[in-house]
């Protein structure tokens, strides 16, 4: 009897140790990685680096083109993907009848969110670059990236819309509101913080994606700031990838500096998302 009990306790203890090691090992690896990058790149992050175009001389090379490319792309992606994604979510949650077709669409959107990004790159290459002849422009890249994050936005927006209690909608209908008045005045305002959080997280995915852009041919030497949506472009992760793939150690340090910039941008965006979520939790206690 005592024997069994002690073995059970032993098992519990072993499991606790395994779980603890799993948690801490990933955190430690992350710290080592970040430390390594900081060690390599921190000294390179300065105004010259931020304000220079890429160059074959490491001491002159900078990420101005990449920063502006990323900003352009994010803005375009926001303009393209957010309205479509939010409208689709509203349609699925508020208008579409719950039948086999809508379930089929829902499942497929969830699947699309899990498709590897390189596939979107191939799609973008075929449709936007070749078929629509957009070439390796900002527009082609942004459209491809929009496709990539649309499922994420739709799912996040749907969750946010679904979280608005049904009783609020019924209350609005009961005073003679139309479907759209109800959505506009009650559902969307209450769902906006959630939608916003989802959008920011989707955008931070877009800013970090490299594969689809390489696929559509954005991996080129770009030594200018794009001026319109038909210009070729580069983005932060592509510039980093470019530097990492060079043999010289100096460029690796530049890559580390680029990673630091990208991380700062990403963490800022995620922090904003968390902040918005927490504030809305206080405002809407259903």
């Amino acid at each position: 009897m005592n024997d069994i009990l002690s073995r059970r306790k032993l098992k519990a203890e072993i499991f606790r140790i395994i779980a603890t090691i799993s948690t801490w090992s990933s955190i430690i690896i992350l710290i080592i990685l970040l430390g390594n990058i900081a060690w390599d790149g921190l000294s390179k992050v300065n105004w010259t680096f931020l304000n220079n175009f890429p160059s074959r001389f490491p001491h002159k090379a900078g990420i101005k083109a990449a920063i502006w490319g990323s900003i352009w792309m994010l803005a375009l992606v926001a303009i393209i993907a957010v309205p479509i994604g939010v409208s689709a979510a509203i349609y699925l949650e508020e208008y579409a009848k719950k039948n086999k077709l809508s379930r089929f669409i829902e499942i497929n959107i969830a699947n699309l969110a899990g498709v590897p990004s390189i596939i979107y790159g191939i799609l973008g290459l075929t449709i936007f670059v070749r078929f629509f002849q957009l070439d390796r422009s900002l527009l082609a890249g942004s459209l491809t990236m929009s496709l990539l994050i649309l499922p994420v936005i739709i799912m996040a927006a749907r969750e946010a819309i679904k979280a608005v209690p049904k009783s609020i909608r019924l209350g609005a209908f009961a005073v003679g509101a139309t479907r759209w008045q109800t959505i506009q005045s009650h559902v969307l305002p209450a769902a906006t913080p959630g939608i916003f959080t989802g959008v920011i997280l989707a955008m931070s995915r877009a800013i970090g994606e490299t594969a689809p852009l390489i696929m559509i041919g954005a991996l080129t030497y770009v030594a200018f700031v794009p001026e319109n949506i038909n210009d070729p472009f580069t983005t932060l992760p592509i510039q980093i990838y470019n530097w990492v793939s060079r043999p010289q150690v100096e460029f690796h340090h530049l890559a580390a500096a680029g990673i630091i910039v990208l991380l700062v941008v990403l963490l800022t965006m995620n922090a904003a998302a968390i902040l918005i979520r927490n504030r809305s939790l206080k405002k809407y206690k259903w």
């Binding site: 209690p165 009783s167 609020i168 019924l170 209350g171 609005a172 009961a174 005073v175 003679g176 509101a177 008045q181 005045s185 009650h186 209450a190 405002k283 809407y284």
Partner: peptide
């Protein structure tokens, strides 16, 4: 008009709760 089982005021001000229906 209708009043529901569980109170379901809009998450807005008291004033807006009442005026919303007439306003729209």
């Amino acid at each position: 008009g209708m009043v529901f089982q569980k109170p379901n005021p809009f998450p807005k001000s008291i004033f807006d709760n009442i005026i919303w229906g007439p306003k729209i």
